[in-house]
Design a protein around this nucleic acid. Structure first.
Lengths: 152, 152
DNA sequence: CAACATTAAATGTATGTACATTATATTTGC
DNA sequence: GCAAATATAATGTACATACATTTAATGTTG
């Protein structure tokens, strides 16, 4: 469906505004589908993203600072997302012996198993961009990088 | 900056995953800039979006159901966003005389003035996609529409 | 018309986002 | 070595998101 029809706004001020709204709307659309896929597993999208970062480090631990560095959304609150994962026993938290200010966070076997389940059962199948060809995906990546190439 | 460098992940599973992450990251990047621009005015992004819908209706009122219908994010809670706008005297709320279940929401002169200020002082100047040409914007709109064209 | 269903908005609750502040631990400079 | 600065995570607060439940008004039907 065209963005005009999705949000019932037939006219945009210009192509720039239309693309802006389309971009935000489409990102939300994708994330909503992903979140819906995780729901039966009791996981949220930020929790999933943190679990993936932890698996990338495994068997080494990660600190909160490392998680923030790797997260898409730098301003979200990694501490509290780790709280939820710890409650579900998907990660462990121990004071770092080398630096007692820092905290070593590790994914558990249950966490690894959950990621494995998500990836092998194809729950994310309908939350991706498989409608685009390889060439279109590259084109999209190029355009998106260019949007952010504005002066900081 | 390329998405690889933004989130310090040098390798993606495939172009699809890379475009997915790039899309979500870029939308967040744009929204963060918009939100920062509104901050000095004491307005949040969802509040701004609702004000714009109300101006589109002005001088007719809107109901909460109409706001939800027009919002980018259907699942957000229009009632409570209107609460905040009402506290700031940017909108008024009165029970609809024709249907006492519904509520007539109207933008005030202060609300109209605030929108005017935002649009004439160019506070959103750095939160747009002006780096893309007209042709690139059209291309982007096409690709985004195609992403969402997947089976529901 | 009374019982039931539907509609419209508000409210409740868990989670996340954005940003400021606080509590400790460590580092640095005198 | 100790005071001040810095680093690291946790906590506080306001707002938003996601979704379930509640409250009240209106419609529908026997």
């Amino acid at each position: 469906m065209r963005i005009e029809d999705e949000i019932k706004q037939p006219i945009f001020r210009n192509e720039n505004q239309k693309a802006h709204i389309n971009l935000v709307f489409t990102a939300g659309w994708l994330q909503l589908r992903q979140a819906a896929a995780f729901k039966p597993l009791g996981l949220t999208l930020p929790q999933f993203n943190i679990l993936r970062i932890l698996r990338g480090q495994h068997p080494l631990p990660a600190t909160v600072a490392l998680l923030i560095d790797r997260m898409l959304d730098k301003t979200s609150n990694a501490s509290r997302i780790v709280d939820r994962l710890e409650e579900k026993k998907l990660v462990t938290r121990t004071v770092c012996p080398a630096n007692r200010r820092a905290v070593d966070i590790r994914i558990t076997q249950a966490g690894l198993d959950l990621l494995e389940t998500i990836e092998t059962t194809g729950v994310l199948e309908h939350a991706n961009m498989s409608r685009l060809s390889e060439a279109e995906l590259r084109q999209l990546n190029h355009l998106l990088d260019k949007i952010r190439s504005a002066e900081e």
